[in-house]
Design a protein around this nucleic acid. Structure first.
Ligand SMILES: [Mn+2]
Ligand SMILES: [Mn+2]
Ligand SMILES: [Zn+2]
Ligand SMILES: [Zn+2]
Lengths: 143, 143
DNA sequence: TCCTATATTGGACTCAATCTAAGTCAAGAC
DNA sequence: GTCTTGACTTAGATTGAGTCCAATATAGGA
């Protein structure tokens, strides 16, 4: 993701080894890692990288709009580098697996003016929940 | 919410002072309290009630389908007693205020078969984000 | 009233996330 | 190429929501 690094450079970012490694971990589509998962993968490439740097860098990437925070389980936050293609998420209610999905209708259209209460509505996130094929195969009954 | 209490009784629940008080706090529509907010309000009515009882009871109410968990900020979980009317949430990105909203289209309809990846999709949650009128009035610029 | 299965309690514990203070180094200036 | 400096990184402490548990209390049936 030297594309990302180039953009960050243009924004006046100091290109440190830690930031390079985090950008490399976040390279690839359809990735939704937690901060600790990013850290674990970053450590493979740069053993001394600290958790704080991972949190700092992820937070800055979110502010810059290069990554978005996703929370599908109400517990851990995940980081999604796929900001170029508008998409929503489909989550397995058993195992937590996450898939990117593209909708055929704009969710903002489903919120009528009379239900906006004077808000300047800017964004909608939609999360679908269901059982994935693997979990359905592994277990016929409920979780 | 003696309606709720009656239903819980029918389910074999013991009616303790703590559970009565929690049910009373959750009475009323359009309420989205955190566990600690429920606890703070419950303490007004029953000073010795513990945080553990609030968490236990909220968890049981969720399992029984009498309350739903809502997470709009990726941090704290909130508890929503409005399970009788299907609705979604509109959240102020400045102050976190939450409004219940009713949609004109079923969000499940917007997820085509080709984007379901074999999942048995059961549910969708939609959250809208924007600035509420109060925050817009208080501050013209961004947060 | 008594009994006991069930509920409550305080406090310790977990874990993600944030903060702190001291040390490090990228990159612009020369 | 070397110097300088403030932005960056680090390990460890701290916070705060949420969980767990052994001891204690009690709802409600016998
Ligand atoms: Mn995604
Ligand atoms: Mn609600
Ligand atoms: Zn699954
Ligand atoms: Zn607001």
């Amino acid at each position: 993701m030297s594309d990302l690094l180039r953009r960050l450079r243009a924004r006046g970012w100091r290109l440190t080894a830690q930031r390079r490694v985090i950008a490399e971990v976040l390279d690839g589509e359809h990735v939704h890692y937690t901060a600790d998962e990013v850290h674990a993968r970053a450590v493979e490439l740069l053993p001394e990288i600290s958790r704080a740097s991972v949190y700092n860098t992820l937070g800055e990437l979110v502010v810059l709009g290069e990554v978005t925070e996703v929370n599908t389980d109400g517990r851990v936050r995940r980081y999604d580098p796929n900001v170029h293609e508008a998409h929503q998420h489909l989550v397995c209610s058993d195992c937590g697996a996450i898939r990117d999905v593209r909708l055929t209708a704009d969710p903002l259209k489903a919120l009528p003016e009379g239900e906006r209460f004077g808000f300047q509505v800017a964004e909608a996130t939609v999360t679908y929940y269901g059982r994935c094929p693997e979990c359905a195969a592994a277990n016929a009954g409920p979780a």
